[in-house]
Simulated assay, not measured.
Amino acid sequence: MIVCENLVKIYKTNDIEVVALQGLDLTVTRGELMAIIGNSGSGKSTLLNMLGGLDRPSAGRLFVDDKDLLKMGDKALIRYKRETVGFVWQNNARNLIPYLTALENIELPMVLTGKVKRDRALELLDMVGLSHKKNSRLGELSGGEQQRIAIAIALSNSPKLLLADEPTGAVDTKTASQILDVFRKLNRELGITIVIVTHDRQLSKKVDRVVAIRDGRTSSEFIRKRTYAQELADMSQGIQDQEEETHEELAVVDKAGRVQIPREYLDILGLKGQNKIKIEMEGDKIVLVAPQAEGKIKVNA
């Protein structure tokens, strides 16, 4: 569904250049529910904006649903944003019109395309569990309810890709869990590809793959050892997994053989302020050694 190759984004303002993405590579399969995590300034929101057609890359390759977003003209880009992608923002003021009811908000994107379907809007309300709130306006909905309405709005034109930018950032932990359950339900029932950008690492408990971005590149992936569905099935049978770590972290190696070493590992080696490191082979291991130091990090080859 998504293919990013050596993606670069540079912002220029008043003779100042800011590199937001520095050769990012990413592949997302159709029907996948995955998350992208990273600290503020890592480039995750920049990536999401480009996937949504809201910004264009400076260099590299970007394909979504077999469409080349770098070569897409303005008219094609408008059609892409209307038909291929749905967007859920963290700020509900960007998601909902306050003087419209929940049902009218969901119908609004349909109005803009000339295809209003009341039954479809009611169906989406039911899918996010808010049929009883169809006549409520923004001020009559809780933060979690507003976000679930926002998800329904993003689905109103049946997009193939749903993008969510910090969808749980403004709600408490319990409400965040409920919102993520809605994403899982939609992914399972509709088969829609969902990409969620967040800074919350706890999100990984409910998705099977989490990609970490650091300094504008994909640095590692957290792969679930057992699928979330398998864990739920075991819980329903009364089987409790005592293992605390549900995911395994794997470093990402780019096409040039480069890998980002976690900053905490570099701190352990005492490499702060240095840019050189010894690389050795020990059997089936790649070993990183600090120059003139005894500390070593072993990495599986």
Rank of each mutant, 00 (worst) to 15 (best):
E5Y: 06
N6F: 07
N6V: 07
N14V: 09
N14L: 12
D15N: 15
A20C: 05
L24H: 10
T29R: 15
R30K: 15
G31F: 05
M34Y: 00
I37K: 04
G41V: 11
K44W: 10
S45F: 07
L47P: 02
L48Q: 05
N49K: 14
N49R: 13
M50L: 07
L51I: 11
G52S: 10
L54P: 02
L54R: 10
R56Q: 12
R56A: 11
S58H: 07
F63P: 01
V64G: 10
D65K: 11
L70A: 08
G73E: 13
A76D: 15
L77M: 15
L77Q: 03
R79T: 11
R79S: 14
Y80A: 03
F87W: 11
V88P: 09
W89H: 15
W89K: 00
W89Q: 12
W89N: 13
N92P: 03
A93T: 02
L100D: 06
L100G: 00
T101F: 01
A102R: 04
E104H: 02
K115L: 09
K115C: 09
K117A: 10
R120M: 03
A121P: 01
M127L: 08
G129F: 09
L130H: 06
K133S: 14
E140L: 00
E140F: 02
S142P: 04
G144D: 08
R148F: 03
I149C: 05
I149E: 06
A150D: 11
A154K: 04
L162Y: 04
L162W: 07
L163R: 01
D165R: 07
E166T: 09
P167F: 06
G169V: 08
A170N: 15
D172K: 08
T175Q: 00
I179K: 05
F183Y: 06
N187W: 01
N187F: 07
R188M: 00
G191H: 05
I192L: 02
I194Q: 06
I194L: 08
I196N: 10
T198Y: 02
T198A: 09
T198L: 03
R201H: 00
R209V: 10
T218W: 04
S220M: 11
E221H: 11
T227P: 12
Y228D: 01
Y228L: 00
L232V: 15
D241P: 05
E245Q: 15
H247A: 13
E248M: 13
E248C: 10
D254W: 02
A256G: 13
R258A: 10
V259M: 14
Q260D: 08
E264H: 13
Y265Q: 14
Y265W: 14
K272Q: 13
Q274P: 00
E280P: 00
E280K: 13
E282S: 13
I286M: 14
V289H: 01
V289C: 12
A293N: 14
G295I: 13
V299P: 01
N300S: 13
